[in-house]
Write a protein that binds this DNA or RNA. Sequence first.
RNA 1: GCCCUCAUCGUCUAACGGUUAGGACAGGUGAUUCUCAUUCAUCAAAUCGGGGUUCGAUUCCCCGUGAGGGCGCCA
Length: 464
Amino acid sequence: MSNVRVRFAPSPTGFFHIGSARTALFNWLYARHTGGTFILRIEDTDQARNSEAFLKLIYDSLTWLGMDWDEGPNPDGVGERGAFGPYRQSQRGDVYQKYKQQLLDAGRAYEKDGAVWFKLLGERYKTYDEHRKKEVEKVKTLPVVIDDQIRGRVERQEDEDFVIFRSDGNPVFHFVNVVDDITMQVSHIIRGEDHLSNTSKHVRLYEGFGVTPPVFAHIPLILKSPEMGQGKMSKRDKGALIEEYQQRHFLPEALVNYLSLLGWNPGDNREKMLIADIVSLFDLPAVNQSNARFDGKKLANMNMTYLLEQPADRFVQLARDYFVKQPTGAAVMANEAYFREVLLMAQPKIKSIDELGAYTVYFFTEEFPIDAKVKEKVMAKGDPQARLAELIAALPAMDFSSDAAIEAGIKSLAEGKGLGFGDYQAVARLAVSGTNAGPSITSMFRVLGKERVVARMERFLRTA
RNA sequence: GCCCUCAUCGUCUAACGGUUAGGACAGGUGAUUCUCAUUCAUCAAAUCGGGGUUCGAUUCCCCGUGAGGGCGCCA
């Protein structure tokens, strides 16, 4: 095992969104690529906004996406693993007190207005702050130099003392973040670019503790797609929540694959890749510097590509997971062999699992909808009623033992009337399935069975 | 207002300082299949602007402009 130690440090104050997932992913990829350790740390110091439900969502989302962690709370939330715990900041009060005392003893922190402040070293002066509309005390310091793995050399001036413990006694983010990274021996900090400006604070804190800062790597942000407006993606944007993709039965590996391509590429034209290949190819210097816009269409396409190539058993299992949650689920899955046959017929045709219900409805009930637009179109051409009547007459004698036999049967009927297969196909499909989209008419007939096909045609003729 | 970062088709992106600026998604057109979808073929589509450096700049430098982020006793 290498000495690379990275962490993902979410706070359970809201839904798990796509930006967090991508940050987690890049950390996970780097850990797996280097043979290092991936740590999950829960930043739950903000008691007012924390919730157990959101905490569980973090575990579930990471697990669903296949990002396993080596240290941190256990995925079921009971107990934890790793030698550097506790991994929830709410349980690390003692550690923070100790480090606060260290700063106090060294003269690098002081109390003011009931809060504890970190003290910058240098000459002090007062100046008016245009942004905050008040006079502030600043400190003349040398710029902090950050050698970022993705950005290169970044310089930033840190010129004001800042709070590390609030007057309510709780430590603030910058402080706990640095203390935890020190005590957990984090070697690389991979996080969003929104933290780049905070990094100078963090570096000063490391110096205050007499510790060499870890390697920083600030990854680009995910922006809204153009139709969603301006700015970085937030939880309120459509498609921003991991939970949503889970509910829509996306394939997690497709989502991970898509996310990995937002700000990174393997150096060639490959896009669809095995997770194992992404792990072996991923590296920090290859990460882009510019922000990326989220594109739901490309994600959907990636998901479809994955869906098309799923082995039959996995696809049926995915379908089962979907139908279990549908009100009609029990009826749909009542006959195992029939269910499987219908589903495998649908697999090459659908773009996402959540289309399955509508796509296969007429296989499981007589109460399927008739698409009005399709009906109008089909009925306007030729003499569909006559074709249907001919089919009804010919069907009882037809061989239904195979797709080929059915096809031959319809063809010979058509030839006898001087017509083509196509003259019967559209109206038969409409009468039997209520739509124009579906598997081949022959396999549809065979799976449905002769009686049901004839009955539906008769009913259609009566009501049409 | 101050500070930091970024800038190639609509979007994600590729291109040792030398390419007809490539690929993918989305879009257009056509072919194939009994429908639909897939698939295949094909078309359209970009180096933000201005200065340098250089024989030569998408690539290096500067200035604009635009976009994103930060400036909390939030994380």
